[in-house]
Each structure stands twice: as C-alpha cells, then as structure tokens.
Design a protein around this nucleic acid. Structure first.
Length: 248
DNA sequence: AAATGTCCCAACCGCAATTCA
DNA sequence: ATGAATTGCGGTTGGGACATT
C-alpha cells in the first residue's frame, strides 16, 4: 500500500512555533475544535502540516496543560509507572493530569532516569553488604500503581484554565472574553498596555508563559484576525456546520 | 573573553493502530 | 472485506542555553 505523506513537505514551515502561529492555532481550535488535523492548518491560516499542529496543541497549547515544576509526587508517579509500564509514555501521561507524553518522556530522560539509575546503583552497593532483600526495581514494581484508570483523574479538554490560572470552568471561555481580556487593561493601569497585560500574565502558572502572551499581545493584527471567528464563524470555517462550536 | 563541551527541550520522523469510505 | 486516510505513539535529533576550560 502506498501512503500519501501525512505532511506535504513543500512550502510548509518547520521548526519552532512563533507566538503568531500559536495564536492562530489556539484561536482556531478553541473556536472550531479539531476534527480533522490534516485540513485544519489550511483553514487556520497556518503553513504547517496537521501533524505539527496536533503536536503543538497537545503538548503546549491545549487548556490545562502544565509546564515544568514537577512535584515530588508527580516524579514518584512517573518512576513507579515507568517501572511497571516501561516506555508507554502516553499511558503514563494519562495518569498525570496536565502533563503531555512528550514532556514526561523528556523529563524522564533528562532528570529521572539518572536519578533512578543512581538510586539503583546506591541500593546495589547497600544490598551487597546487607542480607538479601528485594532490588529497587522489584520494590517499585511491587508497590506500583494499579493501572485501572480509576485512581487518577485524567486531564480533560473540558477543564479549561484561563491564562492567569483562574479556576477551571466546565465551559470554555468565549473568544469575546479572550478579546476583552486582551484589549482591556486593568483599571490600575500604568499606562502601558503591553506591560499591564504582561503583569496579569505573570501571575500565570499555566502553559503559555507571560512572555509568550506579551508577544502575542504585540501582534497587531489580533483583532483583524479574530473578527471572522467572533462574528460569522460559518463564513470562515467550511466545516462549521459539521463541527459545531467548541466541539472537543 | 572566547572556545568548547554538556544538557535539555521542542519538534521532527517513521511506523503502527485506528477509522473511514 | 479491503485499501486509503488519518491519528497517535515512541525514538531521535537540532539547536539554544548554560557550564566549564
């Protein structure tokens, strides 16, 4: 069977995503959902392949995603699950709400693997000088978490967090709200809209950093670009009828 | 201060699995 | 039932940031 390449290599951007691209993708997926990643970039105005868009959304832009600052409990969970599941990162990620498989995989290779190996070596030395007991791996496997999906709450697209870390809502915020947040500075304004906006975002513990949001703010065509979504989404998205608003 | 090495993360790639027509 | 299209997964890599010489 001959596969058509999922990514048409010609004329498509690769590499690091720009704030502008992030915004386009976020705005489009938030408004129209993502039923067909392959066609999405075309209608979102992105020169990326669908695969790249999906990865970016799943790992960095999707609501509720957490970045960095792993807690001790999270790291313990990763180590235990890895001991029992191996490199099944997506399964491991499903037990850590807000964490992507890619990030967990990176964190494992960059930090946890070394620590785990170091601990194993240390324990082996202790084991050699003490009466017989279980190896570190065996111990971990014995007490490893049962993977039945019931003991953890998986991250859900419905648990949207606002960029400033406000409590999750059962509903996605409207794009009008987003626009209001972007275009209306706080009452106690310093007079510099960009800085005020960044100040708000700096409280954010969530995915898109204050730095990124500041950059996003500075993209002057925001309103222009968003206008079609807010007023007549049907005219912008040919799939609108099929997809429905906020479909996840 | 400059050169070199190392670490870490974002993103790409290929393949397998799943869904669709 | 079959083949094509699409999605999801895990391994790998490029390059920027930071540390060391």
């Amino acid at each position: 069977m001959v596969r058509t390449p999922y990514c048409d290599k010609s004329g498509l951007r690769k590499g690091t995503w720009t704030p502008e691209e992030d915004w386009k993708l976020t705005a489009y997926v938030t408004t129209h959902g993502h039923k067909n990643w392959r066609k999405l970039p075309k209608f979102a105005g992105l020169a990326r392949c669908g695969k790249s868009c999906r990865l970016r959304w799943m790992n960095y832009l999707r609501p509720g995603i957490k970045r960095g600052n792993y807690t001790y409990e999270e790291e313990e969970t990763i180590i235990k699950l890895h001991a029992s599941l191996g490199n099944r990162w997506s399964v491991i990620a499903s037990h850590l709400p807000g964490r992507s498989d890619n990030e967990i995989k990176n964190h494992w290779h960059a930090h946890l693997k070394k620590r785990f190996q170091h601990n194993s070596e240390t324990d082996e030395k202790v084991e050699a000088s003490t009466p017989k007991h279980h190896s570190p791996v065996e111990s971990i496997q014995e007490e490893s978490v049962e993977v039945d999906g019931s003991c953890f709450q998986s991250s859900s697209p419905d648990t949207f967090q606002t960029p400033n870390g406000a409590s999750p809502s059962s509903q996605l915020p409207s794009l009008n709200d987003d626009l209001r947040m972007i275009t209306e500075p706080a009452p106690a304004s310093s007079g510099n809209l960009v800085d005020d906006f960044a100040d708000v975002m700096e409280e954010n513990t969530d995915p898109i950093s204050a730095y990124s949001w500041k950059e996003l703010y500075e993209i002057s065509y925001f309103s222009e670009f968003l206008a079609p979504f807010v007023t007549e989404p049907e005219s912008f998205c040919p799939f609108y009828d099929d997809w429905g608003m906020f479909e996840q």
